[in-house]
């Protein structure tokens, strides 16, 4: 009887330890790109050195990206982006700190694709706004891939479009996030 009692305690402890263990995932080579349709030419830039840390137990997720790491095909467009639009020398980083609203929807131990909603604070050019976006989390062989597409309003981040090109540049921009996260020990 005493033995049974002990075993129950042991099992309970083991299980709660396993559940309570915080499993974190991260990457230093996340992909973030943005896209905007223009009548003459599309604006498109890619960044492949975004960092992302995800805490599977709490659903907390954080991103950081260096503005100067956004690469455009055309050098002039990249110079304009850095100098006139995002002032990347003054504001080198953009961050997002949020949580997965429904972390229970994801079974981190089982391969599969899960739909999630992430909301939190987006900071660009020192301006912070609440952002909420749908996304998917794919678990495969211990690795986690997080993907999302959403829109940002440029005016929310004090990104001004010069008068001369005002009607050529869209006021919103599509952001695409695709990060492959590995377990962090």
């Amino acid at each position: 009887m005493k033995n049974l009692f002990l075993s129950v305690i042991l099992i309970t402890l083991t299980v709660s330890f396993a559940l309570g263990q915080t499993q974190r995932y991260f990457t230093k080579t996340g992909n973030i790109s943005f896209f905007s349709k223009m009548p003459v030419e599309n604006i498109e830039a890619h960044n492949r050195s975004a960092t992302c840390v995800l805490d599977a137990s709490t659903g907390k997720i954080e991103f950081a990206v260096l503005m100067k790491g956004f690469e455009f095909e055309k050098a002039l467009m990249q110079e304009h982006f850095n100098e006139n639009y995002v002032e990347s020398s003054k504001y080198p980083k953009a961050t997002f700190k949020g949580t997965i609203a429904n972390p229970a929807a994801v079974n981190w131990k089982k391969d599969g694709t899960y739909s999630v909603t992430v909301s939190g604070d987006m900071t660009i050019k020192d301006r912070t706004n609440k952002v909420s976006a749908p996304g998917t989390i794919t678990v495969k062989a211990g690795k986690v891939t997080a993907v999302s597409t959403f829109k940002l309003l440029l005016a929310d981040y004090d990104i001004k479009i010069p008068g001369a090109v005002k009607d050529k540049i869209s006021e919103t921009i599509d952001i695409k996030v695709n990060v492959e996260l590995a377990p962090m020990n």
Binding site: K28, T51, K68, G69, P92, K93
Partner: peptide, 8 residues
């Protein structure tokens, strides 16, 4: 381009 966890 700056530093996050690493200098990039």
């Amino acid at each position: 381009t700056g530093m996050l966890m690493d200098v990039v």
